[in-house]
Design a protein around this nucleic acid. Structure first.
Lengths: 137, 137
DNA sequence: TGCAATTACTACTTCAAGGTAGAATTTAAA
DNA sequence: TTTAAATTCTACCTTGAAGTAGTAATTGCA
C-alpha cells in the first residue's frame, strides 16, 4: 500500500523545483545529487514529465528543466496521473474488476472514506501548497 | 497505490472461509475454483497463512483448511501483517526514511488523516464484519 | 496394507518495476 | 567552428512479485 518509487521521486523532484527561484532552470545532475536519486533514473523520469507537459526542458549547454506551469497550478494528482497511478473512483481495494454498487467486494463500503480522502489529498495539494514544508527532501 | 495481489487474494480467501459453515474444512482446489485464483499460487498463500497462525490445515484425504480463530477475532490488518504490508505509523508517503515530526516530507501533514483512516479500516474490520457483504468474490 | 486425496516443499519461469550504460542530439559560448 | 554541457533515445541489466511444475509427506478409508 504505497506509491511506486517513480511517483515518489517525481513528486519530490517537482516539489523541489517549485521551491527554487522562479524561471531559473535546474539540471538533472544537480537534482540527482540534491535529492539522492540515481542520476540516470531521474533523467528517465524527467523525460516523462516533459512529455506529459508538467516540465519544460532546454538541451545543450546552460540547459536544464523548469516547471511549465505555476506551482499553484500543478497538483500532486497531476503527477500521479502522469504515471497512471492516481486513484480512480472505481478502483477496488481487493482488485475485483466489477466492484460497484451492484456487486461489491467485502471491503467496498469501508474503503469509500479513506479512498475519498486520498483522492482529496492528491487533487487539492498543489506544489505551491506543499513546497517549503519539511526538509527539502 | 494499491495492495499487492498476494494480500488481495489472502483477504478474499479468508473472507470466503469466514462465510462458510463453521468447523467445516475447505480445500485448496475448491477455493481456487470458486475465487478464480491460480491454484498453485493459492496453495503457496495458504501455507503462509498457516505459518502465521491464521489458518489451520490438515493434510491427506478429507483434509483442507479451517480458520484457526473466530471470524470476529481476525482483522484485515492481521492478514496484511502476514505479508508485511500493513501501514505503519512511520510510513512516509514519499518514501523518505526519516520522515517524522522533526524533519518531515512535503506531504507529511496531508498524509496523516488518510493514513489514519486506512489504519482504522484495517484494524477494525474483522472477517465477521465484512463476510457476507457483496458478491462472495 | 495400499491407494487416493490432500497439503508442503523446492525449484523454476515470467513479467514488470527499478535502475544502468552508452551513444545521439542539441545548444551556448569560447 | 569547435567544444563542452546538457537532454534524449535505445538497449540492456537487476530485482522482486507473480505464477507454475513436480515431487515429497501426510492421512483417511476401503
Amino acid at each position: 500500500m504505497q506509491l511506486s518509487a517513480t511517483s515518489q521521486y517525481a513528486i519530490r523532484i517537482l516539489v523541489y523545483m517549485a521551491g527554487e527561484k522562479d524561471s531559473q532552470s535546474i539540471n538533472a545532475a544537480e537534482l540527482a545529487e540534491t535529492l539522492l536519486i540515481p542520476y540516470k533514473f531521474l533523467a528517465k523520469i524527467m523525460t516523462s514529465l516533459v512529455k506529459v507537459g508538467l516540465v519544460e526542458s532546454t538541451r545543450g549547454k546552460e540547459g536544464g528543466y523548469k516547471l511549465k506551469k505555476k506551482a499553484s497550478d500543478i497538483m500532486v494528482g497531476d503527477i500521479l496521473d502522469a504515471f497512471h497511478e492516481s486513484i480512480k473512483d472505481e478502483q477496488c481495494i481487493l482488485g475485483i474488476g466489477f466492484c460497484n454498487g451492484l456487486c461489491k467486494c467485502a471491503l467496498h463500503d469501508q474503503w469509500m472514506e479513506p479512498k475519498f480522502l486520498l483522492q482529496k489529498m492528491f487533487r487539492e495539494s498543489s506544489l505551491e501548497d506543499i513546497a517549503g514544508r519539511g526538509c527539502k527532501r
